[in-house]
Write a protein that binds this DNA or RNA. Structure first.
Lengths: 230, 230
DNA sequence: CGAGGGATTGAGACCTCTCAATACAAGTGG
DNA sequence: CCACTTGTATTGAGAGGTCTCAATCCCTCG
């Protein structure tokens, strides 16, 4: 991959789309390009980060792992979205782990030039600020999820999925789970067993039908009730 | 309170310290000034916010309240620190509630002029970006807290308190809880009963001594172990 | 001294987790 | 086409942790 590839790739990323060509070119010169295989851990608990990352290909998951080994997936990140930015720019350490879930090609962006850009380039700073605030809302939402039980968590998740990508049938709204149930459990912060039981519960209540990874929601209203803990 | 009071007050707030006098003055003209008594709720679940807030006096708590009434305090905010910023600038809704915990005098800052400043004033945008990223780290940390049990949560909290404001005695590090135990419980996301039992547990293990609201930590090392779930 | 609020203690319920067994699906090799 | 393997999902029994509810305690204040 050549430098000009980097430059044009950077431009294609929303965060950098307004940045001037020269700046992108300079930045491209400082970026490292590496590969990582699925399962590899690219950031460990407590690592000091002086760079953040952008995927060109593949996927990673940002997780917390608590002492007894249980893993909580905070978010999964695909190509084009910078991650570990806050840790690199203002935090001294990254507080969780980042694990590659699909073989990845990743750009390692040093923090120093970005910090400079942050001071000099108003549009860039504004964009980064907005992005960070969006992340904030997302994290708040996640916290909210942790304050309710398994049924409500799954309910919220299914409700949102039902709103998005979905086909309307006469029996209800149908969609496919975008990940294996094991991963979904980690994402919801529960065990696969509990997830399975919760699916059964919702199915027994005739709120949804589960067949493999495809879900049909029969009653959005009931789903909302469940997701609010009723 | 006159306009020029506003202007100079704004300047005294870190977020606005670099902003020009004129801009501050313009902003001051758009700010509303109100009072709120302890116990009052100034933002409700799902409120659409077109403004954020800064306290001149008093305290507020940002919380989640789940359906059965249990309250989780996300953060408590004192004078000079803008809050509900992300919700006002990028989110359509505020996802929790904000409650006044000490009689407050509050400035209501409309989002629109701030959004403009964000685009035009590089220093301001940079500052807001950094602040948001700090919030990010804080929220991540909070999430991490929710992934561990009561002992670990309290352990983490006490450990941090011990590092900060504290007096060193021969028996250990002493400090005062900054809030009633009921509030601390809400802050840790557990019930007062569980908090009490957890305090007893740590005391029985000779890790701390609790007398009213004053805590003596005898073994920081053990506290760290507890806070890591060992 | 009594009242009231916060804090503590105890008993029992509820939920999620753990561990172990089983089921199911897809793919492999004979 | 049939075992066999492997990975994922389900089911059950039991343990552990936190919550709820109720009673009691303690301290402060009037």
């Amino acid at each position: 991959m050549t430098q000009s590839d980097f430059t044009s790739y950077l431009h294609s990323i929303p965060l950098f789309s307004d940045v001037t060509d020269e700046t992108c070119a300079v930045l491209a010169g400082e970026i490292q390009h590496t590969h990582a295989k699925a399962g590899q851990i690219i950031v460990r608990e407590g690592d000091e980060l002086e760079h953040f990352f952008i995927l060109r290909r593949g996927k990673v998951a940002c997780c917390f792992v608590n002492p007894d080994g249980k893993k909580y997936i905070i978010e999964t990140i695909g190509a084009g979205i910078p991650f570990a930015v806050a840790a690199a720019l203002v935090g001294s350490r990254y507080d969780g782990i980042i694990e590659v879930t699909e073989d990845a090609e990743l750009l390692v962006v040093p923090a120093a030039p970005i910090k400079k850009m942050l001071q000099n380039d108003a549009a860039f700073a504004a964009k980064l600020a907005l992005r960070s605030m969006e992340d904030n809302l997302h994290l708040s939402d996640l916290i909210k999820g942790f304050t309710v039980g398994a049924q409500a968590r799954l309910g919220r998740y299914l409700f949102r999925q039902a709103l998005q990508a979905s086909a309307r049938l006469e029996e209800g709204v149908k969609f496919e789970l975008s990940m294996p149930k094991t991963d979904l459990a980690a994402f919801l912060g529960i065990t696969p067993e509990t997830l399975s039981r919760t699916f059964s519960y919702l199915q027994n209540k005739r709120i949804i039908t589960v067949k493999g990874s495809s879900i049909i929601v029969h009653s959005i209203r009931d789903l909302v009730n469940v997701s609010e803990g009723l």
